[in-house]
Write a protein that binds this DNA or RNA. Structure first.
Lengths: 128, 128, 128, 128
DNA sequence: GTGGTCTAGACCACC
DNA sequence: GTGGTCTAGACCACA
């Protein structure tokens, strides 16, 4: 289900965060849908439960999921307020990476294409 | 000359890498131009020389600069080969971040604007 | 009748305690008035009966209600003794939170206003 | 230095958060001052280092401290932006507790006094 | 069974 | 030396 690289410099919990976030924004995981339990995912990925929990906690801080004791972790509805802040952040990120890409030869049409490819992901047309 | 945030979570050497890379792609530092010596930069930024060294080593590894023993560190010319690999990498990055941004409300025209803003940076019209 | 947030981090039984306590101190539930039975409330809120039971037990422990086997749970009269202890506790709480609020910019007049807003709640003029 | 109740229902890390927050808002710990290292505090309190770290991480999330790898944890300057949100939250808290306190016999002059007692704490006149 | 906390002890990254 | 991550395994609180 997930692609973890245990050798990577990136912490495992962070990789999990990214992976799960992608599943949420791509619509694979719908609002209020239940995520795998800490223990089950731990077993499935052969990763320590604490590490899974750390990832879930991080996602909770970011407002992507909410957690109920004794029940499980669930995909949070998106608030709209957060979006404004997030968008500013993400646009800065895009601007920065794009500048570097242009330096390495990115053309405007290349760039334009990327938007639609990204959009496809959201509709779940690019299953992975 | 550099904007270092000692309080940031990001390692200082990494901030240096990003800063210098920006100076190179924005054309402030030209090909074969000499970078400040480790010692002088260390003094100027009141940062441990090892940290500067580490940043230069990283930039060398990424092919952005080359170093000549006893002479100093210089901006590397960009080879076409690097570009191809880098571009693929960067395009993936853009696609990913863009997907998240669309999820948070990015429109196509917003996106389109970002390209030209990024381009400005390269021409050195944008101060930062 | 109650505002339960199943998604909240707070245990449901604790939310129930707070809710019922508010109803009592705001005068909606009068002394010796009977609370809804565990079973009926459980059905109404679609919450596990154990959870309701737990809340009632907690309220009993705090001296807010008393329970008669086979009859039900009832709002307790307040004894002067309890008040003294409780007041000390609550004043400490207020002092603590107020210190933090001043740190974050609370003014004296802001503070003064809060007293009257709180008083309104007790008279039942405040809807919540 | 800290008052920890290992038997309490409250998690140790949370008690630490509260304790340290008090030290910061009371001015005992000044902006950019260094907190005890994770290991030293761990030894001093005979609490696991992970638990200390958890507390520090929580404080970081709340914007009260910042942490630099290899250097230590430091008291963060207050931003002012956060304050608005925090204040609303804290005022709600005060309103709620005050209502309960009035129910248990709090008078307006009692209440008024608390403000100045809280203010003293901030000036560090109340050492503990 | 679920999430949450805690310990003990190891290893890595940074400065 | 500092913070940060991870594991293994235990225990508690909630529903």
């Amino acid at each position: 289900m997930f692609q973890l690289d245990l050798k990577s410099r990136k912490p495992i919990y962070e990789q999990l965060v990214v992976n799960i976030k992608e599943l949420i924004i791509s619509g694979v995981l719908k609002t209020d849908e239940r995520l795998p339990s800490v223990r089950s995912l731990s077993g499935e990925l052969t990763v320590n439960p604490n590490t899974i929990q750390r990832a879930y906690r991080e996602l909770e801080y970011q407002g992507m999921i909410y957690s109920i004791k004794g029940k499980g972790n669930f995909v949070a509805p998106i608030s709209g307020q957060q979006n404004v802040e997030k968008l500013v952040e993400l646009k800065n990120e895009i601007r920065k990476v794009t500048a570097e890409a242009i330096f390495h030869g990115l053309t405007h049409s290349d760039y334009d294409l990327l938007y639609f490819e990204a959009k496809k992901v959201l509709k779940g047309e690019g299953s992975e």
